[in-house]
Design a protein around this nucleic acid. Structure first.
Ligand code: MN
Ligand code: MN
Ligand code: ZN
Ligand code: ZN
Lengths: 143, 143
DNA sequence: TCCAAAACAGAATCAAGTTCTATTTCTGTA
DNA sequence: TACAGAAATAGAACTTGATTCTGTTTTGGA
């Protein structure tokens, strides 16, 4: 049988199955918005991994395409679980921080046009989209 | 007459004309790539403004739309002069760091389509495009 | 020239993130 | 199950980009 536990995923890429890794994946999975290392730390029951362990493993997760990180407006790194390793983007609610994963990338065509226009060869891009989620829009209307 | 000096610009928005502001604008203008505060600091002749002064004024410049900043891959803030206050993006050469300002924004249409699809109301977005500038592409070919 | 507000200098401080080494945990092998 | 080597963690110390704070200087208008 093949129910995908974190243990399976870790094995599949040759990473040892440690308590820290399992609990980190669980915390990321449980959040509907990107977390700072401090926020992750606060959600862990004692005894909990130290910050270096958290950083180190999140980095590994990102390498495997299991998570992404970005730097928020306060210059703090935030981490989020991704459900696919395909190139994609996210939209972040500016009020409640809820984050939604978007399907695919709408920029592919525009970028190849850009290459012709500006002479650069595009190698990669990062896009952060901010907005108000349906719930927060409704809340604003009611006020 | 109306040649646009930094003095004129500062007056126009009610900012006092100080040595620090003039020299900071000059350094930003002279660079073809985004600078860290340390890089700016190193380019200033003594006596030079302290780091808090540099940060404070760059922040003002950004508020006025005269500059932009982003956080680079080492989590360090980089600043660049903008030639327009209109919404636009930049492309950064991954080899030589040269940065080119792009005309307008290719995402407007895609974003309004996204709003319908995901239910969020989009409020703003940030896009960083990385690539190889024409010069660096040529250099790679020759090798 | 004089004054009040704005801006600056520079030291001290903060905190996110990293480094380092000793210890523990994991997993393949016998 | 016991063992050994490799991988991973703990936790303190450190680094450094950025901010705060207070006393001094500069600016621009009256
Ligand atoms: Mn994702
Ligand atoms: Mn620009
Ligand atoms: Zn994309
Ligand atoms: Zn745009």
């Amino acid at each position: 049988m093949s129910c995908h536990t974190s243990k399976d995923s870790l094995h599949a890429v040759g990473m040892k199955v440690t308590k820290a890794r399992e609990v980190l994946l669980r915390v990321l999975e449980a959040s509907d918005h990107p977390l700072t290392v401090d926020e992750i730390y606060d959600r862990l029951a004692q005894p909990r991994p130290g910050r270096p362990t958290i950083y180190r493993n999140l980095e590994r997760f990102i390498q495997e395409g299991w998570a992404e990180s970005f730097v928020d407006k306060n210059q703090i790194q935030r981490f989020l679980r991704c459900s696919t390793t395909e190139h994609h983007h996210h939209i972040h609610c500016e009020k409640c921080q809820r984050t939604t994963e978007l399907d695919g990338c709408a920029m592919t065509k525009a970028l190849s046009q850009l290459e012709r226009q500006c002479g650069y060869k595009v190698t990669r891009h990062q896009l952060q989209i901010y907005g108000l989620c349906p719930g927060c829009q409704k809340a604003l209307t009611l006020k």
